[in-house]
Structures are given as C-alpha cells and as structure tokens.
C-alpha cells in the first residue's frame, strides 16, 4: 500500500516524532516500498493458525514479596535531563484552564 504524506504525518504524531517536511517526503515512498514488501504475510496463514509472540510457552512465576536492595533515587536520577525535588521534571502536561 502507498502511504500519503498526510498518513506519514499521522503515524509520526502517534510515534511522537517531529519530522521535517523533507523527512516526510523521503519516508512516504520508503515506507510504501517496505510495507508493500511486508504485505506478503497476508496470504499465507489460514484463519485457524495461532499467532506466536514468543518462542517458548512460559508461564508467570511468583517470588516472595520481600524488600530487596535496589538503586537509590540519587543513582536513578543522576542520568535524567531535568530533576526537581528528587523527581523527574517535565514540561506542563495538562493545559491551563481557559
């Protein structure tokens, strides 16, 4: 299938990628070619074939709910771009009221 520039912009928004117009222009035909190739997967598997998401059928295991040594807040925050009051700092997420 061919992806239009507007569809590329829509996917970029979902992926939180601020693409330039040049990138959109380059990606539209590239993604169309790759997805066109990938469409081979459509015809082969019958409806009753179960999908595989993992090579082994593993089941969840439980461990005792015990406190264990872990990284300190300072160690974890040391790599963060912005920190305030021992927390990750981010720009405003919720818009201000009218």
């Amino acid at each position: 299938m061919a992806l239009s520039p507007d569809e590329v912009r829509h996917v970029a928004r979902l992926a939180r990628l601020a693409l330039t117009d040049d990138e959109v222009a380059e990606l539209a035909p590239q993604l169309s070619t790759i997805l066109g190739y990938a469409e081979q997967v459509g015809d082969l598997a019958a409806d009753d074939v179960e999908p595989t998401t993992h090579p082994f059928a593993l089941t969840d295991v439980m461990r005792p709910d015990e406190a264990r040594p872990s990284l300190t807040a300072a160690q974890v925050l040391a790599g963060a771009p912005a920190v305030e009051q021992d927390r990750f700092a981010v720009p405003r997420i919720v818009a201000e009221e009218g």
Partner: peptide, 22 residues
C-alpha cells in the same frame, strides 16, 4: 527526554517528547 539521555526543551511535554526523539 524524561528519565535518561537527551532532552530538547519545548513548551509542552508532548512537544518536548517529539522534538527530543526527532
């Protein structure tokens, strides 16, 4: 752009995310 590595500043969190990843 929140927990590690690069951050490109922007007015809102979503714009910061998208600019950082770009």
């Amino acid at each position: 752009g929140v927990r590690y590595g690069l951050r490109v500043d922007a007015p809102t969190a979503e714009e910061m995310n998208a600019a950082t990843r770009a």
